[in-house]
């Protein structure tokens, strides 16, 4: 009975849920500020949600886990930086950033999709290295792009953007603070959660359209889709583009909550967290639901948010939380890979 239940949920998920429960218990026993932790979990859940959601179209259309979301993240960062360079603040600023990021990421996603269609069967490893290449190429880009705003540029050197660009005074936490309210001492970042919910809802609606259903068929069984007259490459392309757009929008939403745009090497390994989160939520390399995104992001972010103070108290030298994040996130990805590879 218990065994079949564990099998159904998946052993690593069970381990991680138990681990999370232990963490919560430990936090409680250590006398951590639980309401602050809860607030943090909610914020991190909201800010990472759309990035995790970016995995959905990729998995649905059959290209697997999108390790190349850095492509979209770069598009988002460029748009965000542009909005700041223009001195746009508040809602105008962030809406400008989001609106501009869409065409950028559509173009990037199109090129990336072309590539993924050419490398069927090796999408994941190619995607990873394409992501790495784009990030490192953009490092040169950040140095030479002709942005002028003093918020952006190093004060001493003539050119080159700063490593982190603050959004203070532009649109820091604009979504978080929208309609936010308190329950006891827990702050609910209403706007942020609404934005995430809206993104999920759009994705949900999309998955029920003619195109969405066709895309799902491609991901489930390529040959069935061919026989059903569905243009497989077109669907894969579309899925990749949507995934790229979502990651572009996702990084802007992430940045407004975080308070900074992080440039240069920062986006390098950003793909691994959303990948791990969606897998933790119950997805596999070829199957995913939106509930997996919500559950996965919540579990994953709760885990790393609570682990930090708890670990710091256990081992004040620091770093234990980061270590457990490395182990947990990569462990769950490895497990998913063995599951999909073993069936051949």
């Amino acid at each position: 009975m218990v065994k079949s239940y564990i099998e159904k949920i998946g052993l690593p998920r069970v381990i991680i849920i138990v681990f999370l429960l232990l963490l919560i218990l430990a936090a409680f026993l250590q006398g951590q500020n639980m309401s602050m932790l809860t607030t943090d979990v909610l914020v991190r859940f909201g800010m990472n949600g759309i990035l995790t959601l970016a995995m959905v179209p990729a998995i649905l259309c059959g290209t697997g886990l999108n390790f190349g979301i850095a492509v979209g993240i770069i598009a988002g960062l460029v748009s965000g930086i542009w909005s700041i360079d223009l001195g746009l603040t508040g809602l105008t600023g962030i809406m400008f950033a989001i609106c501009v990021s869409v065409p950028f990421s559509v173009v990037f996603g199109y090129l990336y999709g072309k590539l993924l269609n050419a490398v069927k069967g090796s999408e994941m490893v190619v995607g990873t290295y394409v992501g790495y290449s784009v990030v490192s190429l953009m490092c040169i880009g950040w140095l030479v792009l002709p942005f002028k705003s003093p918020t952006l540029v190093w004060p001493i050197a003539k050119a080159g953007l700063r490593n982190t660009i603050t959004l203070d005074g532009y649109y820091e936490k604009i979504f978080n603070n929208f309609l936010s309210f308190q329950i006891g001492s827990v702050t609910i970042p209403t706007g942020l959660l609404l934005v995430f919910a809206l993104a999920c809802f759009i994705m949900f609606i999309f998955s029920r359209t003619k195109t969405g259903i066709a895309m799902k068929a491609v991901g489930d069984n390529n040959m069935y889709a061919v026989a059903a007259g569905i243009n497989v490459n077109k669907m894969r392309m579309l899925g990749t583009i949507i995934s790229t757009v979502l990651s572009a929008v996702g990084i802007i939403v992430y940045a407004q909550a975080f308070g900074f745009y992080q440039l240069y090497q920062a986006p390098l390994n950003m793909a691994f967290m959303p990948v791990a989160a969606v897998l933790l939520g119950g997805a596999s390399t070829n199957k995913v639901k939106i509930s997996h995104v919500v559950i996965g992001t919540l579990l994953f972010q709760a885990l790393i948010t609570i682990a930090l103070p708890v670990a710091n108290q256990i081992a004040p030298e620091g770093g234990l939380a980061e270590v457990s994040r490395l182990i947990v996130s990569n462990g769950i990805i490895l497990y998913a890979l063995t599951q999909s590879g073993g069936k051949k």
Partner: peptide
Amino acid sequence: NRTKGQEMIAGMILGFF
């Protein structure tokens, strides 16, 4: 041996793990 065809990505993630 359990991830034949995806050895490279598996090896990479294993490295991080």
